[in-house]
Design a protein around this nucleic acid. Structure first.
Length: 542
RNA sequence: GCCCCUGUAGCUCAGCGGAUAGAGCAACUGACUUCUAAUCAGCAGGUCGUAGGUUCGAUUCCUACCGGGGGCGCCA
């Protein structure tokens, strides 16, 4: 779709040149204003030029709108100057009709697609929960975010790899094994062990040796399979499951510590090897190899990130962790800097804590204490669509409390029903069209859509054409929840249209039926595109 | 103490430095011989935590303070 904004920017550029000025290098916006009185598009250009050339913005705006470049803008009905110095363009409905044809021709594959990602190889690491138990709801929230962000980035031309880092070795696996063995003996898990009920159940099925490592690995493998199934229920599929044990066994950890040593970033103290991370902005230095000779988790993670950036040479990496891993951020960035890796290639996004409201109390999740509410339980309760849309309704930066009663309601409280119902209505219209032997919507010329002038139709068309910009911003700001916000608006516009603009009822002209059917098809392209970006199904009927 | 996130309507939350700050829910009122009312419409609800600063313009950016959440291991 040729974005109308770009067309207007080109005309404004010509207009500025016509007046003999330079276009400001940054800050110029052409946007769809929030208020309809402000027209279809609006620009702050005159306000910025005012600063640059020292003339009042209103008189600059006057000169601009008098130029040939502006007067000849396609579809232009009216151009107005507003208070501080905005220029507001009102276009004829024909500009919307034209764009509808473009969206329909692009279809689900091409509409709202961008190429600015330019094939950048980007790795997204997310979830990476230790296989010491089932995923909890917080994991599901951040998993939905990571997957949707990947979809948005892919639509903008990035080449995305989704990866899960599996902590299949080390102290937690031993603790897990010890907890299993204790339960099998009918005892309480040891101090610091895992207290969840699932451990008791697993212990009853463990037939192996009385060996904590063997028991731990057995349970971890089983847990990992469970985790994978939980994620697949949410439409989340990883490209790679990267084993921590594999990187340790390969000697890569020792190698990267050697490399850090060669670069002078390591020192010895109290029998341990330390990373001089304070030199790169960390609040304290970090242990890489303990005095007992074992490498720390951090050392393994550094080797893993070295593998991402140097061995596999991803152009950029986004790590998505829970806020409880905040402490790792400065250390990892320091380690990358110490290795001479451009720190800007590493982006770490932290998801704030998710809790569940049960009665009046918020339940905090702890896997060790066994109070984590499992993701599977929530998906059983409300289904995958509601889970994903709820997770993707708010910013990652906001700590959320899930209200189960509201999540189970089948109303607008639940964006999933509202949005999916809009799609089901579109699908129903198409079924009915087919049953009545009416040909699928087809238009040879945008002028055949000239009958679409009802305020409900206008609003729907305006919502549809906003998606490309929403997708662009979602990718740049790593904010897929913007797509959810847009979907709610689109669904609202469609429900309003559906209510006031009959498509297949008696007494409607053939021409209007054809145009409205076409509009419904275009709306369907848009809503399916949006839902797919979030990994949510578009049901034919509900 | 230090670091990160957050404070917007009664509640849950949107809001790329722009114009009169928006949705849903809850409360109240209205619309079903229908293309599925899982919908639509109306009404009501705001010192955008507080105080400064930058700017033509600040809910948005900066600083300080106050409230809430999270993190500061030779755990992972």
């Amino acid at each position: 779709m040729q974005r109308r904004e770009d067309q207007i920017v080109r005309s404004l550029t010509l207009a500025v040149k016509e007046l003999g000025h330079e276009v400001p290098s940054s800050g110029v916006h052409v946007e769809i204003p929030a208020r309809e009185e402000h027209g279809d598009y609006s620009t702050n250009l005159a306000l910025l030029l005012s600063k640059q050339i020292g003339q009042p913005p209103l008189s600059i705006a006057e000169s601009l709108i008098a130029t040939e470049a502006i007067r000849s803008l396609p579809h232009l009905v009216k151009v107005e100057i507003a208070r501080p110095g905005f220029i507001n363009f009102t276009l004829a409905a024909t500009h919307l009709h034209e764009l509808m044809v473009e969206v329909k021709e692009e279809g689900r594959d091409l509409f709202a697609r961008h190429d600015f990602g330019d094939g950048t190889r980007m790795q997204l690491e997310f979830v990476s929960a230790n296989p010491t138990g089932p995923l909890h709801i917080g994991n599901g929230w951040w998993a939905s975010y990571g997957d949707a962000l990947g979809r948005v980035l892919e639509r903008c031309g990035y080449s995305v790899t989704r990866e899960y880092y599996v902590n299949d070795t080390g102290g937690q696996i031993r603790t897990l094994g010890a907890s299993i063995l204790a339960r099998r003996r009918g005892e309480e898990p040891p101090e610091g062990g895992y207290l969840g009920d699932y451990i008791v159940e697993q212990a009853s099925r463990y037939l192996g040796e009385e060996d904590i490592v063997e028991a731990g690995k057995w349970a971890a493998e089983e847990n990992l399979a469970t985790i994978q199934r939980s994620l697949e229920r949410l439409n989340i599929v990883f490209d790679t499951w990267f084993s921590q044990a594999s990187i340790e066994d390969s000697g890569a950890v020792a190698n990267v510590v050697d490399l850090l040593f060669e670069r002078g970033a390591v020192f010895e103290n109290d029998g341990a090897l330390w990373l001089r991370s304070t030199e790169w902005g960390d609040t304290r230095d970090r242990v890489l190899r303990k005095s007992n000779g074992d490498y720390t988790y951090l050392a393994g993670d550094i080797a893993y990130h070295y593998n991402k950036f140097v061995i596999r040479a991803f152009d950029a990496v986004i790590d998505i962790f829970g806020a409880d891993h905040h402490g790792q951020v400065a250390s990892m960035r320091a380690a990358m800097a110490a290795l001479g890796i451009d720190v800007d290639r590493l982006e770490i996004r932290l998801g704030q804590i998710v809790s569940l409201e049960s009665g009046d109390q918020a339940v905090k999740f702890s896997k060790r204490a066994g109070t984590a509410v499992s993701l599977d339980w929530l998906v059983d309760e409300v289904g995958p669509s509601v889970t994903r849309l709820l997770a993707l309704s708010t910013s990652l930066d906001r700590a959320t409390t899930i209200n189960l009663a509201e999540a189970k309601e089948r109303s607008m409280e639940n964006p999933a029903y509202y949005i999916q119902y809009a799609h089901a209505r579109m699908a129903a219209l198409d079924r009915m069209r087919s049953e009545r032997g009416i040909a699928p919507a087809a238009i040879d010329d945008a002028r055949e859509l000239g009958v679409l002038v009802h305020p409900r139709e206008i609003r729907l068309m305006r919502e549809i054409i906003a998606l490309p910009e929403v997708v662009r911003l979602s990718a740049l700001e790593r904010a897929p929840h913007r797509v959810t916000t847009w979907l709610k608006g689109l669904a609202a516009a469609f429900h309003g249209f559906y209510h006031d603009c009959p498509v297949l009822m008696e007494g409607i002209s053939d021409e209007l039926v054809a145009a409205r059917l076409y509009l419904v098809e275009v709306a369907r392209v848009a809503i399916v595109t949006g839902l797919d970006l979030l990994g949510v199904d578009a049901p034919e009927e509900m």
